[in-house]
């Protein structure tokens, strides 16, 4: 496959996944900021800025951290390269560039998402409804994933799409967990803590998984274990790395030795990891190290497959 095509497929699904993750993250922040007691709305609404590393760029264009402004910044703001608007436009542009490599149904799901988003933008977030918007983004992402899963040939195009999804998802799950952990550590109030972890599980769609796997009340350690080590949870770091480990060797040709090695090493660390080790290391330190490794893997994939000189 052409390297440029692979890059467009990879970024198409990365951007779509990023839009979905951003919607999930905002949904939590939005809901928590609406809880009138105990929660510091300002802190909740700052979290997405911290998670995505965009606090500085937000502050450069805004005087104050206000719920409506942060929401706009992340959803429909054309000027923020991390906004859902921007992600879905980039996804659509990538899809346009590989129009001939994806199925008609995949293209239609991306293209109609973009057309609808433009209409939503006319209404504005308040006009459309914030919760409705986040649900819409999640549904569009489900639709695209379903169209991909249901119609794409199992070839390198499919593999590069999936690579993008899991690199982005691993990165995002680690960030979301890290930030929630840090806010939670600072607050310490039992009820608020419960709301936070509960919201986090909901945001990654893992609330039911927690209930099914653990019989104990929701707490930080179990949530961490669930989202880092459990193989059954599709957004856990382990699941993401397992997928990357399966995808990379399946790509045709002999390129990508370094990428395959990095993915395999990281997967082994998760597969044979345990919670005690993570607690001893410190969750924040553990996740920081993980993020560094995922980004190294992403860079290597780029060098070995996507931008071959």
């Amino acid at each position: 496959m052409l390297s440029r095509t692979a890059a467009d497929l990879y970024w198409l699904s990365r951007y779509f996944e990023r839009a979905e993750n951003t919607a999930r993250m905002l949904d939590v922040a939005w809901n928590l900021s609406l809880i009138p007691f105990a929660v510091d709305a300002r802190e909740e609404i700052t979290a997405p800025l911290v998670i995505t590393g965009s606090l500085a760029s937000y502050q450069a264009s805004h005087d104050d951290i206000r719920v409506d402004e942060v929401m706009h910044f992340f959803t429909l703001d054309d000027g923020n390269p991390g906004s859902i608007f921007h992600c879905l436009r980039a996804a659509r542009e990538s899809a346009h560039a590989v129009r001939g490599k994806i199925t008609a149904e995949m293209w239609e799901s991306v293209n109609s998402t973009w057309l609808e988003l433009r209409e939503i933008r006319e209404l504005g977030l308040e006009g459309y409804g914030a919760s409705e918007f986040f649900d819409w983004v999640k549904n569009r992402s489900h639709l695209f994933r379903g169209a991909t899963y249901g119609t794409s040939m199992r070839n390198d195009a499919f593999r590069f799409l999936r690579l993008g999804t899991f690199i982005e998802r691993a990165d995002n799950t680690a960030r979301i967990l890290d930030v929630k952990h840090q806010i939670g550590r600072a607050a310490g109030d039992g009820a608020v803590d419960f709301y936070r972890w509960h919201a986090l599980l909901r945001s990654v769609g893992a609330y039911e998984a927690y209930r099914e796997i653990y019989s104990e009340p929701i707490n930080a350690e179990r949530v961490s274990e669930l989202l880092i080590l459990r193989p059954e949870v599709p957004r856990s770091l382990r699941s993401c790395m397992q997928m990357l480990c399966e995808l990379l060797p399946a790509i045709e040709g002999h390129a990508g030795q370094q990428s395959k090695r990095l993915a395999a090493v990281q997967f082994a660390r998760l597969q044979y990891g345990d919670l005690d080790h993570i607690v001893d290391t410190g969750l924040h330190e553990y996740l920081t190290d993980f993020l560094r490794r995922v980004n190294e893997l992403a860079d290597t994939i780029r060098e070995e497959y996507l931008e071959v000189v």
Binding site: M1, L2, I251, G253, V308
Partner: peptide, 14 residues
């Protein structure tokens, strides 16, 4: 790209 008198395309497999 052109190399050694032929045209090549950059692919994920070289």
């Amino acid at each position: 790209f052109v190399k050694d008198g032929f045209v090549f395309m950059r692919t994920t497999a070289g």
